[in-house]
Amino acid sequence: MEDATRVRRLEALHRTTRELMEAETYREVATVSVRAASTVLGLDANAIHLYEDGEGLVPVASTPHVEELVGDLPTFTEGNGIAWRVYASGEPTVVEDVRHDPDVYNPDTPIRSEMFLPLGEHGILVAGSATTSAFDDEDQSLAQVLATNVEAALRQVDRKRELIRKNERLERFASVVSPDLRSPLTTARGYLDLAREDGDAEHFDRVEGALDRIESIVFDLLDLARAGDAIEETEPVALAAVAEDAWRAVEGAGVGSLELDEDLGRVSADASRLQQLLENLFRNALEHGVPAAHSHSRGSPDGRGDGAVTVRVETTPEGFAVADDGVGIPEDDRELVFNSGYSTRDDGTGYGLAIVEEIADAHGWNVAVTDSESGGARFEFTGVETAA
């Protein structure tokens, strides 16, 4: 009889797995999971807490019986409660009597025994009982099967989100690439026809210029495509060192100097993409130069605003910023500058700052543009994790 019961429960878990893998959101996965834990496994009091950056293990779904026992479920912050300890260790744990555990979140809880099942980096499944030693080996075994399936479903949601994001980027690229490439292609064809007619070398120069333009667009589009790829791993990166490397890479783009705050510290980042982000910001500052108001004292008497520019990398309470004393960005244009293809220069591709935003997004950072103290542009990055 026990074997038949176990088979029925495993079959029910198998059906639940199909439902889990069809879920579109974390909350949907969690809702299906707590229902299955209750109806299939008999864990009447159970809940799922999912990790949210900056908050902790947040309750997402629970059975009514949990709320009857403990009321509103808490968010377990780092270092607090048995749930956080088990989540951090990644090891399934059964506590026979939580009141005897030094990490019990609430010593006066009516819950006596609990089973904790980590869901990878996503969170934890917690089942409780008002009696001690409530969970036997069979409960633990089947609950672990469910937890494994829940973790797989949460990863599936991640993959679906990434696929949607990539498809949206492809659609955006398609809408941008076609007109951007059509213009230089038309130019190249036109001058090639003229060159065939009269053999004038100047026409070939125009064709070469159009092809160079196409090459720049293609390279920038490839950078843009890579910039938004999900970052799997980060490492502690010395911001000053990466900034100096980025500056050396773009020095030929214009006349200027780099200043760094004394203690920029280290940030958690992908070093290569962080350098590309800084290169694009530095190049943007150098190519746009200083405002006409400063140009007479900076060696640009014609007022074109292409004199020396100073770029500074600064620390902020929530990350870092890159500021310059250049022409600045009008307030009405500040949302537009991150759009693919937007440029105020005839020879610009308009992808440099779009790449900056994509790299920031891939790190989970936010970027905003404001005025610097000198009236230039200031790009501030928040949500940046510092590293020791």
Score class of each variant (00 low, 15 high):
43 L>N: 04
352 G>L: 00
233 E>G: 11
122 H>P: 05
111 I>K: 03
376 G>N: 03
241 A>P: 01
34 V>R: 02
13 L>F: 03
156 Q>E: 14
242 V>K: 01
112 R>D: 10
130 A>H: 14
87 Y>N: 04
104 V>G: 09
98 V>N: 01
214 I>V: 15
53 D>V: 10
383 G>Q: 07
293 A>P: 10
232 E>Y: 09
10 L>T: 06
251 E>N: 13
202 E>I: 08
61 A>N: 04
342 Y>W: 13
344 T>Y: 10
123 G>W: 06
80 N>T: 15
213 R>Y: 10
33 S>F: 00
75 T>V: 11
253 A>K: 15
208 E>K: 04
315 T>W: 05
237 V>G: 06
57 L>G: 03
329 I>D: 00
212 D>I: 04
18 R>H: 13
268 S>M: 12
328 G>V: 10
46 N>W: 01
293 A>S: 15
55 E>H: 11
103 D>C: 08
267 V>M: 02
127 A>H: 10
225 A>N: 10
135 F>C: 02
308 A>W: 12
195 A>M: 09
249 A>S: 14
231 I>W: 05
310 T>S: 10
35 R>Y: 12
11 E>C: 08
291 P>Q: 08
240 A>W: 03
383 G>H: 07
95 V>G: 02
58 V>L: 01
93 T>N: 06
142 L>W: 02
361 D>Y: 13
255 V>H: 15
76 F>K: 00
333 D>L: 15
283 R>G: 05
340 S>F: 13
159 R>W: 11
271 A>L: 07
147 A>E: 04
31 T>H: 11
56 G>H: 05
82 I>G: 00
108 D>I: 04
287 E>H: 09
16 T>I: 08
